[in-house]
Amino acid sequence: MKKAGLNYLLLLMALPLLAACSDEEATAPAATVQVELQNMVGVQPLQLDASTYTSPAGDTYVVSNFKYYISNVKLISSKGEATFLEPESYHLIGGEGKTTFELKEVPAGTYDKIELSIGVDEAHNHSTDQVGDLDPSNEMVWDWDTGYKFLSLVGTYTGDTGNGGLVFHVGGDVNYKTLTLDLPQALNLRQQPNATLRLQADVNELFQNPNLIDFDVMHAGGHGAGPSMIAENYSNGFLKVVEVK
């Protein structure tokens, strides 16, 4: 015990020297940006299996499983000062998956937009590469030809004329959508080397804007026009940055 104490003391003495060492070697300070994602329905946090929600078309529904891929995350400075593209950028969000991820080694600069895509880009969608959260054994694999499910929502609904299961599996290269979101305030990484971007996704936005989805008419789908309508919706107002901190 005594000896451990002594070791710590020596380490403590050595630390400032080590720090001095690395300081001189570093070129430009790089920052870490935490991205936090929260799934919502309107203004309430999404609860799986526990709450009944009302869709924009007036049907009620319960969500039991909800997941989607966010990929190729970029931080952009509109002054052209800097852009940062996260390498191997594939994040599975929702369900029991993670709700935060970290952008590492972001060059110092002032950023005012974030660009990201929902889905998996064509090059990675049809390959056996397993970078980021791409995993041929997770729930998001489809078949080898179609690639990954980009977004999966499973639950139940009660409509005006019927009720039943809600199963949307959206995938296919045409439904890979890239969105650019404004940050509510610019992120100055020179002043703030450890920042957090808080994003919210609103499930109800999958069912409106521009395409109003009435569950009596459509409550399932993976290929074809229906899911593409949902994909158009998720590129419009589904995700927003609510806070920079």
């Binding site: 000896k3 002594l6 070791n7 020596l10 003495m13 050595a14 020297l17 001095a20 060492c21």
Partner: peptide, 16 residues
Amino acid sequence: LRNLLLPFLLLIAAFA
């Protein structure tokens, strides 16, 4: 700096 650091680290290692 390295010259200074090295004996320190060696010392720590020796004790550990």
